[in-house]
Nucleic acid binder design. Structure first.
Lengths: 214, 214
DNA sequence: GTTAGCATGTAAGGAGTTACATGATTTT
DNA sequence: AAAATCATGTAACTCCTTACATGCTAAC
């Protein structure tokens, strides 16, 4: 209902973490960096404004502990203390919306990590699409990178070469990881239903549109 | 002489590439993305303003081909065509300055890749310090991440776990890579001089200030 | 002659950081 | 009672992206 547009990793990560359990900002940041710390770290300077925006959008609500003192008698009010944030119904809906979109945002570097972290709240078919999308994206990157290298027939010094190889191997490693995950997802999905033999055909065709690997 | 402050990966990458050979913007961007494409990609919207700044700072100069037509006779002038940029003496100095600073900027994620790409223009002792700095940085990250995990004694779902393991392994892999590079650098440096036994002491002391590994 | 790719740029804006400013609570 | 850490926030700024606007050059 309130101001739309925001996206970004932070919003999703905050909604995801608050879905598990209500928290205040400071703790949120720690959990955030424990969750994604290997990829990126957020500062308070981005977290608090984000929380503010989410409140404005009605996706989360502040739970100030002033409400604990109904008479308002003894303690000086506004003891600016912990503000616990929790998800609203709209927030849950928005989270689900974000976790369900299987577009570029979901498989680009920044977006993928967070979405993967919350995969247990994501529909199985969407999980598979995101994993495959990510894999395609990486394969594209490998391909265009190798093509660029081939064009550069000029001498490359040993450090540049070393960097390129390390980069390539990193990405190849992630592709192998994705392959394994995709395999597991498919096995689980196949085992999970066991009826509907027609769906196997769907899977197979989705397979050759998406890539040319293995 | 002109406005200072700018830093950033782009500036360094542009200076580094132009040091190898003069180029125009469009080609520069391709080479840029061929060099660092596995880590990041730049758009024209950031490249051209960057070139403009570098010109203002006197670090590069434009070489417009209008000068090819001394009489200015036949062709309509200002045939807005390729603008070839090349490094000035100040630019070379600045590049050297950037490649020589062995501080946090050199081993944080964004800065490390570019600097490594131009390692062949970097002094051997600086190379070693940067590699060691990067390794320390990653080891710090591993440590604080594992500490955060230990604190989170709560249940982690299998996807989060999977993400954490993949992240950890990626970083551990880079540490192993760095170990190998550092070993090579040291061997080369030790073999390269063979005189001056006092320098070994310097190396040894530099060693224990920088990290606590092995 | 029109599409595709080469080439240069600008304006508006998004996403996040640093540095600062403040206060509460816990530990030593 | 001092120091550390918990806790919340803001203002200014950086770096880069997207979308747009333009024009040249080669290929089909």
């Amino acid at each position: 209902m309130a101001g739309r547009k925001s996206s970004g990793v932070l919003e999703l990560a905050v909604l995801g973490l608050l879905h598990e359990t209500p928290m205040h900002g400071y703790e949120l940041r720690k959990r955030l960096n424990a969750l994604l710390g290997m990829f990126r770290a957020f500062s308070y300077g981005s977290l608090y404004p984000c929380l503010k925006r989410l409140v404005e959008q009605g996706l989360i609500v502040e739970d100030r502990p002033e409400d604990d003192d109904p008479g308002g008698a003894l303690l000086l009010q506004s003891r600016r203390s912990k503000i616990v944030y929790k998800l609203t119904a709209d927030g849950k809906e928005r989270l689900q919306e974000l976790l369900t979109e299987a577009g570029p945002a979901a498989w680009e570097d920044e977006g993928f990590g967070v979405r993967f972290a919350f995969f247990s709240h994501t529909r199985a078919d969407v999980r598979l699409r995101i994993l495959e999308g990510r894999r395609s994206r990486l394969e594209e990157r490998l391909e265009s990178f190798r093509a660029a290298l081939a064009r550069t027939r000029e001498r490359v010094d040993s450090y540049t070469l070393e960097l390129h190889n390390h980069g390539l191997e990193s990405v190849e490693r992630e592709v192998r990881w994705l392959n394994e995950l995709i395999g597991r997802e498919r096995a689980e999905q196949a085992g999970g239903r066991s009826k509907r033999p027609d769906e196997r055909a769907e899977e197979a065709s989705a397979d050759d549109t998406s890539d040319g690997d293995r």
